[in-house]
């Protein structure tokens, strides 16, 4: 199976206009993803992970300044599609989205079942309401939400159950790719493990592809086939997940792995001193220079994203 058989993103940029200047939230991101595989995007808060998701799904706020690049889904450049066609043919039917903190945004006055069915009706994926409800019920069963939960309200459900409902909503149309933005960060570890088990099961059973966005590296290892490490709006390392966990190359990735706490190891986790740069006026060269221990003069120029080994790219002068 080709590695970028399903999705290929090339040079995606998303910049926002603010009254302080341009925020370069996504700056030249490229990656590919095959069917049935999962890409995890890891990075610190504010590095542009959610903006990347929004750029892929074309869910843009009003203050967009630049939105460029190419996104191929099954070989079709979906950036070229008109808004209406994109909405009808791509969003939700092929590309679904679980937004960040969605469990707090469920409508408190609509029954959960109807909310799961709603996108099917909005995107005209079900012809009648009863068909939509039937498919919603199916999706709910898939995520382990008992049938009688369909007629309950969001506030009657625990956090884990609400997250399941949201995932059911995304899966109802059987999309080829689901973008999950921090689906478990607000949940406790047991629920988190539950949801991860669920996603793993769906991945195996339906060969659904996922883009999992998270800042929690240990959790990301539950699902990851490919890892994209994001720093200050750019992807600094793109590789197979196991390579990233075993042998990270970029200095930032190394620091990230060293910061993961572990239950059993005696080694004390480390933290990365300093703060990521502002996306308003990011430094000219490598954006990690300020916190990097291996920096040299070269780093004042922007490093290219070079292919170090087969399918492994690092944006760092050390690997030139």
């Amino acid at each position: 199976m080709k590695k970028d058989g399903l999705l290929r993103v090339e040079d995606l940029c998303l910049h926002f206009r603010t009254n302080k200047g341009l925020v370069q939230a996504v700056d030249g991101v490229s990656f590919g993803l095959g069917r049935g595989l999962t890409l995890v995007v890891v990075g610190e808060a504010g590095c542009g992970k959610s903006s990347l998701a929004r750029a892929i799904l074309r869910l843009l706020p009003r203050n967009v300044h630049t939105y460029t690049g190419r996104i191929f889904l099954n070989g079709v450049d979906i950036m070229k599609l008109g808004e209406e066609r994109f909405r009808r043919e791509v969003r939700w039917s092929k590309l679904a989205f679980v937004p960040q903190a969605a469990i707090n945004s469920l409508n408190p006055v609509v029954k959960v079942g109807n909310q799961v069915a709603e996108p099917l009706l909005v995107h005209r994926l079900a012809k009648t309401k009863s068909e939509a409800i039937a498919r919603a019920r199916e999706a709910c069963e898939l995520v382990g939400l008992p049938g009688d939960f369909l007629s309950r309200y969001a506030f009657e459900l625990s956090g884990g159950m609400r997250q399941r409902a949201i995932i059911a909503m995304a899966l109802a149309a059987r999309p080829a790719l689901v973008v999950l933005d921090e689906p478990t960060s607000a949940l406790d570890v047991l629920t988190q493990a539950n949801i991860m088990n669920l996603l793993k099961g769906i991945k195996q059973k339906f060969k659904t592809s996922f883009i999992l966005i998270t800042h929690d590296i240990a959790t990301s290892s539950e699902l990851a086939d490919i890892a994209a490490i994001m720093y200050a709006g750019q992807v600094v390392e793109l590789c197979n997940a196991s390579q990233f966990y075993r042998e990270p190359l970029h200095p930032y990735s190394q620091k990230l792995i060293a910061s993961v706490p572990s239950l059993r190891q005696e080694k004390r986790p480390e933290f990365i001193p300093g703060q990521p740069p502002s996306l308003l006026n990011p430094p000219k060269g490598c954006r990690f220079t300020g916190r990097c221990l291996s920096r040299s003069n070269r780093c004042e120029k922007e490093p290219p994203l070079v292919e170090v080994k087969e399918g492994r790219r690092v944006k760092c002068w050390l690997y030139q």
Partner: peptide
């Protein structure tokens, strides 16, 4: 024991193994 086994661990092998989580809700 359940709580400890649910703690996320950095292990590439996680991709293929399911976690043991006690059934039901608190």
């Amino acid at each position: 024991r359940a709580l400890l086994s649910a703690v996320p661990k950095l292990d590439p092998a996680n991709v293929t193994t399911f976690k043991e989580v006690p059934p039901g809700e608190p």
